[in-house]
Write a protein that binds this DNA or RNA. Sequence first.
DNA 1: CCGGGCATGTAAAAGGTTACATGATTTA
DNA 2: TAAATCATGTAACCTTTTACATGCCCGG
Lengths: 190, 190
Amino acid sequence: MISPKRQGGSFKMAQKNILQFIILGLINDHPQTGYELTKSFDNDIGEFWSAKHSQIYPQLKTLEEKQYLTHTMEVSGEKLERKRYSITPAGQHLLTAWIAEPTINQTNGKDEFVLKLYFIHDQTDPRLTTMLEEQLQYHTEKLTHLKNQLSKKFPDGGDPANFGHYLILSHAVSRETEYYDWLNDALKQI
Amino acid sequence: MISPKRQGGSFKMAQKNILQFIILGLINDHPQTGYELTKSFDNDIGEFWSAKHSQIYPQLKTLEEKQYLTHTMEVSGEKLERKRYSITPAGQHLLTAWIAEPTINQTNGKDEFVLKLYFIHDQTDPRLTTMLEEQLQYHTEKLTHLKNQLSKKFPDGGDPANFGHYLILSHAVSRETEYYDWLNDALKQI
DNA sequence: CCGGGCATGTAAAAGGTTACATGATTTA
DNA sequence: TAAATCATGTAACCTTTTACATGCCCGG
């Protein structure tokens, strides 16, 4: 396998609870309600992360308690209330720190890096090159590793007696190839 | 988004706890210990699913209680014991049923279908065509949807003011394209 | 006036990770 | 003989899903 490398600092490294950063990122773009945040996960962002309202509402509460968010009340019609959340300077700090922090690539099919990218709007943002190159390095190693596996386990192509295994390894290789190509493309565009 | 469609039967549909089926599938290939199962998730299968030993040992216990597995003791050296688990006919039934059952594609980055494939060894297995075609239909629809999104949101290619969003949508499209191509390739090979 | 969508929450259960705990065996 | 790996398990915690619960608003 591939060694994780890079650490994000010698002290503690709380990490995790990625949902909070996604919420912060979405609200940083513009103030919104819990309901609107929930819907975001049905759109593009849902391709890479999803969350239910039952997770979002409590998280909003927690983030407000920690003073990363504030809210104002709005009213629709006669009495339907909604809370529109805005990010605080402390919240923006936390968000920025999360984006800047080197991304540890998880093994579990979740891709934290892509989420960070989503919150970078400006094509000329100086963080882009570093972030993309860091990922490129990781995925280059991973692709090499997988290609080695494939040619080692199936030197003659699809083995009829181990077809499923062959198929998923091929899939893993082409999936990584796509990631690699995409990162290179992105780097070319900046 | 895309409607899930297809149901696996009108009665109940327990589903979930996919880990149990993976364990069953791995043990069906050959009897093994909890420790060996744990290591499987560091290899190819780990590209698509992972689990820690703290999840595996209790699951083995449960599966044995339900009589889907049995174990025999082995001894290494003087006193190091290990439990080698084998699948029972009931376990094989459960495994077969899981593989046969139409796969509902999850939104959360987990890919149950690939795992099912992994446990089909024979290239001429009659289940393959159906399974691959079912997935092909799903991913064709999804690809179409994503391409529409991309051309709708970014008709002129990379928007310098929304670059991150553009990048991840492009990534989603090429990721789906890879899936689509892979499925077609697989179908050609059977 | 009714159905679907808007809007917000809580509770319980399941799934998954990290930490705790222990001890044996092999390899350098 | 010390470190790495083999080997198995439990406990605590965190994350995520499903279900419960309530009520308003708008369009047909």
